[in-house]
Design a binder for these strands. Structure first.
Lengths: 188, 188
DNA sequence: TAGCTCATGTAACTAGTTACATGATTTG
DNA sequence: CAAATCATGTAACTAGTTACATGAGCTA
């Protein structure tokens, strides 16, 4: 969804080749975002075409040559712009891409200046409010439609359990957002 | 990912038009799965081409005509096959499609006979084990890499918070799967 | 010598989003 | 009279997956 921006953040931390990026997206980043090498190579090419990154071919003796990508000025501008822009993700409570989008922004906030840090904070606050409202809706629905869950059977039980999935996911998102806000507030 | 199967389940409960399905995927199903009407119309056409559903055009006086879709024998066979097949989803801990795939299977298990019910139960158990293992990995990583989270700042803090996102999401998935297993065990 | 790591790619496909288009009826 | 509901679609696009392809060097 915003894989180019996720790559921009990762390359801001350290320049690297497509192969190295693929390993990052399979390692420490994998808990919020997975991406295959095919997807990364393709994205890097369009990013280079757009001037967001510059490429340097590094010739190696024992290993194949590699292309090392570095964030350009235009890439830094784009990153700052994106950090300040509202979230664009979508999806159901269970598979919501806004949460991972926020995680990437959080990770990259340091590379967009002071304005970006506070903009991202604002987005966390806004997302928290949205999530809380959704969770309230779910809880209301739960109370009115399933007042006695222990007695449910068949498809009513299944519908209830599906709703519970949304509630668990929503709760987890809320807890996480709160943890983020606490962490960003305290150490100041 | 398995939208055709999610539609098969919904149509097994009650036959309906594309428009009605779109409303279901925007209402009670939306907490685990969202789908637009465009996607649903397209999918219904291919499902009809594949013989999974049959179509009846219902002429209406005050409203536009509608096409009502009903699950065919081939559709029922396909549903039973899919219910028994292993999960095919993927994704990171935060945006994992296996969870929603399981939710749909759970919902549809009743339409695939006794074999399907126990097959789905097995998949819940397997998924629970996978999730628990992943969560353990995350906790291990947390302990070794971030022993003192309160002291973190900058990008180390951000990396820690991203990991916490994976942990929250994993925990929620585990809790949900446990709730499902309890609900399916007790009322028997 | 079999399999893994490093390194980059093409091609075909599946899944999902956004924008555009039409038109009658019902509700506020 | 404006907006929502009912009802179906096309087209273009973005995102992501799966399969295939190549080839050197290093490790068990």
């Amino acid at each position: 969804m915003t894989l180019p921006h996720a790559i921009l953040v990762s390359l801001s931390e350290r320049s690297g080749s497509g192969y190295e990026l693929a390993r990052r997206f399979d390692g420490s980043i994998a808990d919020v975002w997975t991406a295959t090498h095919q997807q990364i190579y393709k994205t890097l090419r369009t990013m280079a075409d757009d001037g967001w990154v510059s490429v340097t071919t590094v010739v190696q003796q024992t290993r194949p040559d590699k292309k090392v990508y570095t964030v350009s000025d235009a890439g830094r501008d784009e990153l700052a712009r994106w950090l300040a822009a509202p979230l664009t993700g979508s999806g159901s409570a269970v598979t919501d891409t806004r949460i991972r989008e926020l995680a990437v922004k959080l990770h990259g906030a340091g590379y967009g200046g002071a304005a970006a840090v506070s903009a991202v904070r604002d987005q966390v606050v806004a997302q928290r409010a949205e999530r809380a409202a959704l969770l309230d809706t779910y809880h209301g629905f739960e109370k009115t439609h399933f007042p006695e869950p222990a007695r449910l059977t068949g498809s009513a039980l299944h519908r209830y359990l599906a709703l519970r999935g949304g509630i668990h996911a929503g709760r987890a998102a809320l807890d996480w957002l709160d943890e983020i806000l606490t962490a960003l507030r305290d150490p100041a």
